[in-house]
Design a binder for these strands. Structure first.
Lengths: 166, 166
DNA sequence: CAGCTAAATAGTTATGATTACTAAAAAAAA
DNA sequence: TTTTTTTTAGTAATCATAACTATTTAGCTG
């Protein structure tokens, strides 16, 4: 859902004011990076943002892009989809469950929910800590990929269960 | 939720049989890596698994651990929490929403839900593609971290909205 | 159960995203 | 303006993960 040009400019303006008010500098680079993210709904990667902002600020460095993205994220103005900068974490538990993750120490605990709504009530989580945000991601194959699809890897899991329970 | 030793061995055994049946080799290294993951509920990183398996197979290489984890994941025996190997993707959309991600091409689309249950019915997703799995992550601060907590960064978002809507 | 052959491993190097570093530049305050 | 402090550009470093290659091994075959 893209937002209009007026709204983009309104937010960039508001951002500048908030920066000044809180002792951060509203630099040209920061405004352009934030503007670039406000203008799109395609969840660009850092490299993509770098490429686009470079059209307006040819001398901008990749480091500035990364630094600014970290700043904006820390300040809650943008979010990142997916959880890079963390190591991959593995799990042999094949029961359907969710995870609680501590953003400070990386603790990861399992959350089971019997009824669908329960996880939103966060009942099982209070024992582990306080939830700041709920991250939900659906993974699959998009329409376009389905068209030129052929691959059909055999999926061990179902087979293993059969053998395991005989 | 840890599983018992018997169940661990049963699954390792089943894994070996499935491997042979499908032309993959049930090597000592693979069994140990899978066993290590079955024995724990702490979602270890690759390095952690490496360190533990090394106690039993001192000469095992880190590459083997990574290779085996990829294999197990591809076969559906284990899953990874978080999505490494992808670039971080950013988003300035601060409305509550979820993401649809194509695991093949990386397409990422927003999913909005008015009522809480709707996202589970996956209604809005059918237009984008087929969902294979739903990933839910709650982020926050765990009990242990709350105890020795002091940090309280100011969170720009709320402030910006106020300025923006005056 | 010894030999065969494709698959897997160990050890190492490479890659690719992200971060750290430092001198120079620029924003906000005085 | 001038000053002070933050931020930036450019580059080098880091860190997790993947690729490469000679050697080894699992599982088949006779």
């Amino acid at each position: 859902m893209k937002i209009g040009t007026n709204e983009v400019e309104r937010r960039v303006q508001a951002f500048s004011e908030v920066c000044r008010r809180y002792g951060a500098k509203a630099t040209h680079q920061r405004r352009e990076i934030y503007r670039e993210l406000l203008r799109t709904d395609e969840h660009p990667a850092a490299e993509t943002i770098y490429a686009r902002v470079r059209k307006r600020i040819p001398a901008i460095s990749l480091d500035t892009v990364y630094r600014t993205l970290r700043l904006l994220e820390k300040k809650g103005l943008i979010s990142r989809a997916g959880f890079l900068n963390e190591k991959a974490r593995f799990d042999a538990n094949t029961l359907p469950h969710h995870h609680f993750v501590c953003t400070r120490c990386g603790f990861m605990g399992d959350i089971y929910h019997k009824e669908r709504d329960e996880f939103l009530a966060l009942r099982d989580v209070s024992a582990m800590g306080t939830v700041n945000s709920v991250h939900i991601e659906l993974r699959g194959i998009c329409k376009s990929c389905q068209k030129n699809s052929r691959l059909k890897d055999n999926y061990f899991f179902a087979i293993l269960i059969v053998i395991s329970t005989i």
